[in-house]
Nucleic acid binder design. Structure first.
Lengths: 131, 131
DNA sequence: CCGGATCCTATATGATACTG
DNA sequence: CAGTATCATATAGGATCCGG
């Protein structure tokens, strides 16, 4: 037991995000978090510098972008390439693993974006029913 | 400009999650949020009652589950079926829209779960390099 | 240009008690 | 059972200044 999804095509994976203590839960949060998802999505088409990323990920602060990138780099999803020049130049790009994850992530994002009209309509119905 | 992803297969979608003010960003957060993702994933194989969900989504509190379900219901991703019996019985299930989203979500989750060994190895390398 | 350090606020989350 | 209400806390997030 212990909170896992039982039966039903359980492939006996060693990692189960439904279990409270599973480390995959943390990584999933890095990937799907507010800034993690957008950062990885922004890097899909190639490497970007720090401030380029800041502009693409509209609204992110320096602090959060820095923090987000470090978590993604630590998880092996993003590679950081620093040039010891002055002024410094740092490029970020997805690793092979990062690309795999980002593909799924973008499929999800595009799915949501493509259905937003339905979502907004549902919201109006929900709010109306609560007068 | 305005923070959108330009060029590159831009399908001119009306909604762009990279834009700060786009409502899709909020919905994406409901879907990918700590409890939203797990809740939708748990509902994939059929409807569940409130406390069944609580047990499947290991670690969620009553409050957060309730709050999460309301957001997902409002977005039209989850349907709530309440029976006016005593004691009350309430079943939650994915809507058609919810299923579409959840499929993508689970593809992402399984991708992450299946690559956790790589992630954990990357973490050790990262931490070692920082002694 | 790329962040690190600091301070402060908002929000998310958790624990507990209570109700129909 | 299925929540809501309340209180307390942790964490996320933002603004700003500073240094390599």
């Amino acid at each position: 037991m212990s909170g896992t999804q039982e039966g039903i095509e359980a492939q006996d994976l060693p990692y189960d995000v439904f279990a409270k203590a599973c480390p995959s839960r943390g990584t999933l949060e890095h990937v799907t978090g507010r800034w993690g998802a957008l950062t990885m999505g922004a890097l899909r088409d190639g490497s970007l510098r720090f401030n380029e990323l800041r502009r693409r990920v509209d609204g992110v602060s320096e602090k959060m972008l820095s923090q987000t990138l470090q978590a993604l780099e630590r998880d092996g999803l993003v590679h950081r390439e620093a040039q010891p020049t002055n002024p410094p130049r740092v490029d970020y790009e997805l690793t092979a693993l990062g690309h795999e994850v980002t593909e799924r992530l973008l499929a999800l994002i595009h799915c949501v974006e493509g259905r937003m009209d339905d979502v907004l309509a549902a919201r109006e119905r929900y709010d109306a029913r609560r007068d």
